[in-house]
Design a protein around this nucleic acid. Structure first.
Lengths: 213, 213
DNA sequence: TAGATTGTTAATCGATTAACAATC
DNA sequence: TAGATTGTTAATCGATTAACAATC
């Protein structure tokens, strides 16, 4: 409880900082000032310093920030060093794509299983894993201490499945189902609503075109 | 220019409103008050009224909002009625999944082509379409008046490909590449940075666990 | 008309930016 | 020491919430 409550606005910016710092690291750049970083990232230097100082002083007056150190600190804040156990529930197009595409291990997520209710998929091999029936979920979650579920099933049923999974001990969801999950306060949910994102795009196009009239 | 500038915070909430209104419509509910909707969606009634009134008065004093009317108005604001021409550039796991998974047509996006630089994929059939080589892009974009590109290629090369596509006349990107595109101000970019989202999830798990100590 | 609920103005809260003293 | 740049406080800006008059 020694850290104050950090706003999600700040948290949302951390991965982007990490990305730029990673690139600087790759370019063997050792130090950077908030001013330089602000020009690179197109945000204010003030915001950068405020953001970092939510977590304590990472810099050195008169010098700036050490890229490597800052990178590691942000990675730590994001909890990327910790290990979690993760499964994918829903082996349709999106579930399969994420299984193959995301490098879960790199972020500390140990990916151990994929499930679906479609019999036709049972036994299908996806990245060294066989699609399992939903009936296996309960025991699998308990036996493998699964704490995170990537939810890529259709919105029908998603709410119920999530509730079930919570009862098995799951603590967090990366939710791609186009619905709001109904889970207790202490369960972490990160929503990725692709249709919503596409509609935002749609709005911004309409808006731009309107400006042209 | 008769609409004031609406903040992206408001726009981001519109798709969620639309989703709930759609469900109310499906349940044959004709009217709803901001109060009722606020309880359903877990936001303040005040925010709902403020949000809607950015676009003019959709309700009726003493009565509430007509669900059907409100739904249509929000859909109109989001520009879902307009038609756009869209292609997917990058036919890997994610590109293929989106091609099969997203119902682009439902949001007014006419999906007409998918491209990749991997020879092995040329001619592969994805949802009635054959994967085309990148060399075809220039003519295809021009001939088919493509205005939107779903960018699902690796971050290496994404910036350059985006710049090229802009020069062919593309006006908007739904960007899944883990990099910031470098395009002119008037080009619309909607980013979906999945790794960033996953890191946010990671942070919130760490945070929660810290609270438990 | 009376009751309900919006539309809108005012108050509050939080996030961003600016400024500058602390200090490397 | 002088110059640079952070850490941090203060000022501004914007977004959310509260309150209430307008009106259906």
């Amino acid at each position: 409880m020694d850290e104050k409550n950090i706003s999600q606005a700040v948290i949302s910016r951390l991965p982007r900082y990490l990305r730029y710092l990673g690139e600087l690291k790759d370019s063997n750049i050792e130090r950077i000032s908030s001013q330089e970083l602000s020009e690179l990232m197109n945000v204010t230097a003030s915001q950068i310093r405020q953001d970092f100082n939510n977590f304590g002083g990472f810099g050195q007056q008169g010098y700036g920030y050490k890229v490597n150190f800052l990178y590691d600190e942000i990675a730590k804040i994001l909890g990327i060093n910790k290990t979690h156990h993760l499964i994918i529930v829903g082996a349709g197009n999106l579930g399969q794509a994420l299984a193959n595409y995301m490098n879960f291990e790199r972020r500390g997520f140990h990916f151990t299983g994929i499930f679906d209710c479609n019999e036709a998929l049972y036994g299908k091999k996806i990245r060294d894993m066989y699609v399992q029936p939903m009936e296996n979920l309960k025991n699998f979650v308990k036996d493998n201490a699964i704490d995170i579920v990537v939810l890529t099933i259709p919105k029908t049923g998603a709410v119920k499945v999530a509730e079930e999974l919570v009862s098995y001990g799951v603590k967090a969801f990366w939710n791609f189902a186009h619905v709001d999950l109904n889970v207790p306060e202490d369960i972490v949910v990160e929503n990725v609503h692709l249709s919503d994102s596409l509609m935002k795009l749609s709005y911004n196009i309409s808006r731009k075109n309107k400006g042209k009239d």
